[in-house]
Nucleic acid binder design. Structure first.
Lengths: 206, 206
DNA sequence: TTGATTGTAGAACAATTGTTCTCTAATATG
DNA sequence: CATATTAGAGAACAATTGTTCTACAATCAA
């Protein structure tokens, strides 16, 4: 196998130890699912991308849907963690909103933009077919929306955002912009154009 | 067959006349493709939805991809025609933009919103896999974007939109909102909320 | 060592996929 | 009428799908 030799250190767990790193495998799966979507991705695609055999995949994830759910969850948590890092370094509410818009714009241009967003594509093709997936998509969206509400309120608190605007309507409008960026970013937009859209969207703050 | 008796009027064309209406069949196909997406829709799904047999489908459309392309094209042209009707009755550029936003908001709530948009879902899952589909998606997006630019310029001409704003950046930001509406509309939003987003998005005009 | 347990490899499997083929029916033209 | 041409119904087909199964390997605990 590509991963090289097996670790011979004790594991304190019964049975043969896993030869591959789970997170790495899930990262590979994220790549295929982003490019091909759920239904166009076959088990052999996943095997080719991860370097694992059918048997290992099924032992580790149960079935194809299990691989996807693991990929989806990891994708969402990685993106949220990266976003949090970006937001933490911003001075006030308005700048946090700007940074969030730019964070999405950065992910929505060029090759990375073409690879697409697992949340948006799942929303479009899995929400109707799989109740559990629909719930996860909705949770991810709700998370982003409530984060936006918090940022807006913070901005109203620190004076960087007008206090007479509707928090919920503004947050929803910003959420639409964010998801829209991922959609139009699928057709190879330039970084400059997407960042311009992000900055323009700040007008929604007041 | 469900379509009833065959028309016995002369057709001035050789061969047995088609027993079903092409546009009706394509409309049915649009319904399945919107709900299930391209890859999760099988020929039998299409047969069930249209009431046609495999043979008839292949005679009429060549293959599954042909059915989808016909559905996509008809979906786009129907939507554009409906949009044009709405825009024509608006007095000025700003109101036309508002009407366009509301047109998308109306399509993005409740059951209709859950059924989704063929352009957006194609953008997310087919753009990477099928060059011709990618081209059609891009054409549809460009069309909407250039329409927005024209509406903005019209508004600047009739005084309803400030003349010092960047037409292209504003049009792109509005396009992002429109596509974003279709994404978040997949998780059952209320009509009121979506219309509020549409109105809020008018802030992008300056 | 022995046994239990878990992972790996890949063959095997049933079901479904998209597509083609065959046969028959319906029309236009001569 | 006969012939050409197209449509309809559905059986047939090869390929692929997701999944399971079997044999073997590697670890822990005793």
């Amino acid at each position: 196998m590509a991963s090289g030799q097996t670790s011979h250190a004790p594991h304190n767990q019964p049975g043969r130890p896993r030869e591959f790193d789970l997170d790495t495998a899930v990262d590979d799966a994220i790549g295929v699912f982003r490019e091909r979507g759920y239904h166009a991705t076959s088990i052999s695609d996943l095997g080719a991308a991860t370097g694992l055999t059918t048997g290992s995949l099924y032992k580790a994830f149960g079935d194809k849907r299990g691989v996807f759910l693991a990929a989806f969850d990891r994708y969402v948590s990685l993106r949220h963690a990266a976003l949090r890092d970006v937001l933490d370094s911003q001075p006030n509410g308005r700048e946090k909103v700007r940074a969030m818009l730019r964070f999405y714009a950065e992910a929505s241009h060029g090759d990375e933009g073409c690879r697409g967003c697992l949340v948006v594509s799942s929303a479009m093709v899995l929400a109707t077919l799989d109740a559990e997936m629909a719930a996860r998509v909705e949770a991810a969206m709700r998370h982003a929306e409530s984060l936006l509400r918090r940022l807006i309120r913070a901005g109203q608190g620190d004076g960087s955002i007008a206090s007479d605007i509707s928090v919920s309507a503004t947050a929803r409008a910003l959420l639409a912009v964010l998801q829209g960026l991922r959609v139009i970013g699928k057709s190879g937009r330039s970084r400059r154009d997407m960042l311009a859209v992000a900055d323009r969207a700040l007008l929604l703050l007041g």
